[in-house]
């Protein structure tokens, strides 16, 4: 869904770095190097970035926009 705020295992705040990671990897950078430069060193945090699928944009398409229920 949306990137978890913290690493499940160690508790490091990771959500603030997701957008930078996603953008840079999308441009073709090596994910390992991006994670190193963002300061994500432990493999517990790294696996969350590598395995995350950001589906919140998909569910937004099916949401109602206002209180009247218009899409």
């Amino acid at each position: 869904m949306i990137i978890p705020v913290r690493c499940f295992t160690c508790g490091k705040v990771i959500a603030d770095k997701w957008e930078a990671f996603n953008e840079r990897v999308g441009k073709g950078e090596n994910p390992a190097k991006v994670l190193d430069s963002l300061g994500i060193e432990r493999y517990c945090c790294r696996r969350i970035f590598l395995s995350h699928v950001d589906l919140v944009g998909e569910s937004l398409k099916f949401s109602v926009r206002d209180r009247e229920g218009k899409i």
Binding site: I2, I3, V5, V13, A15, D16, W18, E19, V56, G57, L60, S63, R65, D66
Partner: peptide
């Protein structure tokens, strides 16, 4: 302590 954590994503008017 950290201003850049995404809490939610909203569509226009939500």
């Amino acid at each position: 302590a950290n201003n850049d954590i995404p809490i939610a994503v909203l569509n226009k008017g939500q």
